[in-house]
Design a protein around this nucleic acid. Structure first.
Lengths: 200, 200
DNA sequence: AATAGCTTTTGACCTGCGTCAAAAAATCAT
DNA sequence: ATGATTTTTTGACGCAGGTCAAAAGCTATT
């Protein structure tokens, strides 16, 4: 993992992050500079481990370019939980919130550039900018909806329907994710997914 | 549905609700009276429809005593989504947040007493009590965790494992919910659930 | 460009659980 | 209580999709 704070290219791109916040709240100049002072740039190579389940997750990464995989190990196999991509936050949610270890690993499916915000800094922002609480509440609502939809699509559906639903929710991204990881995300055998794909 | 605002028994019981808030935030006297002025008591008979998917969900109910079922219709069948019980909020989440219709119905599995808070009043509280934003963010975090666990337990598990997980998450409540509703919640056939139960 | 190490595909086989149907048990309304 | 309705149980059967095994394709490394 490389770090860097310099470079006008990077400064300029924080706009992307501000724009993300602005989907939910108005971002004042004070908030902007508070964010600016606490967020720094990180990058990962393809295959690199971003977060280890052996550790407490103390930072949240907002992906500017690239793709991660959140996964856990069950019976020695890697089960994909979620694929965080551009303009999304990525962390081990429960670990990040409770400051305890949790089961999730995160690694990079592609070379990835991201903005890093540490828990302690986030806490500072919550304390000093109530609009950040609102941002958090509202953006969680969005994710919430996705989780509920996903739960609905896991029950009472055939493997093919699960895959179709996946294509819909990940339409921009699905071709960047290896088949095996998609299968474990959907809870179906990779052989089955391979067969589903071949008959189209 | 019967309404009422009087009665010392009811006033006294709002303490339950305040205590719930206090798990996440400090509840000042000002907040208490603001809540008190905006929350009123409602009750439902067993089987009664609490929320209709044909309407926008404009209120959130905090259950004091009783049990609801949140469900939707798929291929003419009622599929249980969730069973809100004592000390939990119940609404049609997406509808409540976006003020648009959504697919969920809610009805009462038992005679149920609840506190009712309307969206507009909640918005007022958010505007005037930033700690309510925090409460909302933190309590959503809890629910979030449950949803993720549930997603994990829907994939790669046998019908029996799904049922065992259900018993664990609903340990206080599972015996109050009819078998058929549990089966649709888990995404298994009720015949299968009946067989699982009989071999114990 | 050749070897090693993954990932995906194809084939054969088998079982958990869904579906359909009907009986038994429980709940409700008069 | 008694008949009507709803819910649960039991049985028979079939298939979607899991498992195991091996071949075929890819990717990366020296």
């Amino acid at each position: 993992m490389k770090e860097s704070n310099l470079s006008q290219q990077i400064e300029g791109n924080k706009e992307l992050l501000f724009r993300h916040f602005e989907q939910y709240i108005r971002v004042s100049d004070e908030l902007k500079s508070a964010l600016d002072a606490r967020i720094n740039f990180v990058s990962f190579n393809k295959g690199e481990l971003v977060h280890d389940a052996d550790k407490v997750c103390t930072r949240s990464l907002f992906i500017q370019k690239g793709l991660f995989r959140t996964y856990f190990i069950k019976d020695g196999k890697e089960i994909s939980e979620y694929f965080p991509a551009e303009n999304e936050w990525s962390n081990s949610p429960k670990s990040f919130i409770t400051r305890q270890k949790d089961m999730y690993y995160i690694d990079a499916i592609e070379n990835t550039e991201a903005f890093c915000l540490k828990v302690d800094d986030l806490v500072y922002l919550f304390e000093n900018f109530p609009e950040m609480e609102r941002y958090s509440r509202l953006s969680m609502g969005t994710v919430f909806g996705h989780l509920m939809e996903r739960i609905a699509s896991l029950r009472f559906t055939t493997a093919k329907e699960k895959y179709d639903h996946f294509i819909k929710t990940y339409q921009e991204i699905h071709h960047r994710i290896p088949l095996g990881m998609i299968a474990s995300y959907l809870g179906i055998a990779q052989e089955t997914l391979s067969r589903i794909r071949s008959e189209k």
